[in-house]
């Protein structure tokens, strides 16, 4: 039996890796992958709590998170493609007509 602390620490670490990825990487696709990493670390937290509490709400929420993340990915990639068609780049530093 693995203690709940281990799961929480693991998911906190992956969440922080995701946050750092969003802030540090310059490629829009990689930034987006980092965001997905954040969402998945949340899923891990939810499942861990759900098992610990013996309550199914957390697992239900995980399904919602996965569905929403899929919808978000569809829209996000479409936006990246629309941008790429106009600018031939997905580098965030080159996307600077508007002041960031």
């Amino acid at each position: 039996m693995v203690e709940i602390q281990s799961y929480l620490i693991l998911s906190a670490i992956t969440f922080i890796i995701g946050v750092v990825g969003v802030l540090a990487r310059r490629n829009a696709i990689i930034v987006f992958m980092s965001i997905e990493l954040m969402l998945n670390s949340v899923n891990l937290t939810l499942v861990a709590f759900s098992a610990y509490l013996g309550d199914t709400t957390g697992q239900m929420l995980v399904f919602f998170v996965m569905t929403v993340a899929a919808a978000e990915a569809a829209v996000g990639l479409a936006i990246v493609i629309a941008l790429f068609r106009n600018k031939q780049t997905v580098n965030i530093d080159d996307i600077n007509i508007l002041k960031w």
Binding site: V22, A28, G76, I79, V80, A82, I95, I97
Partner: peptide
């Protein structure tokens, strides 16, 4: 495009 990418990310 740019504004929607920023808003999205």
């Amino acid at each position: 495009n740019e504004s929607s990418l920023k808003y999205f990310l």
